[in-house]
Design a protein around this nucleic acid. Structure first.
Length: 282
DNA sequence: CTAGGATCCTGTCAGC
DNA sequence: TGCTGACAGGATCCTA
């Protein structure tokens, strides 16, 4: 579930706790969740490529972490820092039933929880991170892609639905189901429009909307809970504060008052205002 | 090559 | 209460 803003939130939070700390031991509770042989070493940097998190150690090895749909990372040192898939159990005793891997740092354990086991932690050589099959295919993020580039990309997939296209990380990187719906709503574009019908102006607006919704989310700590349980108690609240359509079905559109509805597009639950987002344009 | 659907896995919830 | 099917903030694999 975590999309780019959530992973960025995790990156910023974890950096405060595990940079310069030593990874001393790895406990694997689910074999599928950890790829490669466990390593030890001191954390030098934490990076993010789209929705993937990279923890670089000082010995040429890195841990690549992808949370996919239900992954969570919970650091439990002097303070607890939790982010990723939202749930009520960020304050649970750990490990719990969904804990798949425990990374033991000399300052405290980092739990990788993942209900559905789609996510993973993978050991890779630091100098080969960008050559990884997943990482190397990632497109640019919305902030560095130009409207012209984006428009050209859409034209290459003229028969695809616009929502499916902006969810494809090899076309534009970072959007997931929440921010795709929010960006399309902000741009007044129906998710089932074919890419060939998207005008240059609409492409520009959609790109700018994608930046805006993700900027807002990063600024508010992501839409998932990112909780300093023993510190200030704040949590990510994008969905509460900023979301206009995601999980708002049945509620009035903030622009026109029409009821937001939920439909299915490209196999994903999709939220739209049927009045602001029209399929057929004149 | 593209486009669309099934699939990985566990848990929860609505409807009978 | 118990069962069943739908669905879930992602990405890949298979098919036509």
């Amino acid at each position: 579930m975590p999309e780019l803003p959530e992973v960025e939130t995790i990156k910023r939070g974890l950096s405060k706790f595990i940079i310069n700390k030593k990874l001393t031991k790895t406990t694997i509770l689910c074999g599928k969740s950890f790829i490669g042989a466990p390593v030890t070493g001191t954390v030098k940097t934490i990076r993010r490529f789209g929705k993937a998190l990279i923890i670089d150690l000082d010995n040429g090895k890195s841990l690549m972490i992808h949370l996919r749909m239900t992954g969570q990372l919970i650091y439990d040192g002097k303070e607890r820092y939790a982010a990723g898939h939202p749930s009520d159990n960020f304050t649970d005793k750990l490990p719990n039933k969904q804990t798949r891997v425990i990374l033991e740092f000399d300052s405290g354990p980092l739990y990788f929880n993942d209900q559905r086991k789609f996510g993973f932690i993978k050991v890779v050589d630091t100098d080969k991170v960008e050559k990884d099959d997943f990482i190397k295919k990632l497109a640019k993020e919305p902030w560095v892609m130009t409207p012209e580039e984006f428009y050209e990309k859409l034209q290459k997939h003229k028969n695809s639905l616009i929502k499916a296209t902006i969810l494809d990380q090899t076309i534009i990187c970072g959007l997931g189901n929440i921010y795709a719906d929010e960006a399309l709503f902000a741009s007044k574009i129906h998710p089932e429009r074919r890419c060939s019908t998207i005008t240059k102006n609409e492409a520009k607006l959609l790109l700018e909307s994608a930046r805006k919704v993700m900027d807002e989310s990063i600024a508010s700590g992501g839409s998932t809970m990112a909780t300093y349980v023993k510190a200030d108690g704040t949590k990510g609240d994008y969905l509460e504060k900023f979301a206009q359509v995601f999980r708002h079905e049945g509620r009035p559109c903030v622009r026109c008052g029409e009821k937001i509805i939920k439909i299915r597009v490209a196999g994903r639950g999709t939220h739209i205002c049927p009045n602001c987002q029209r399929k057929n344009h004149d």
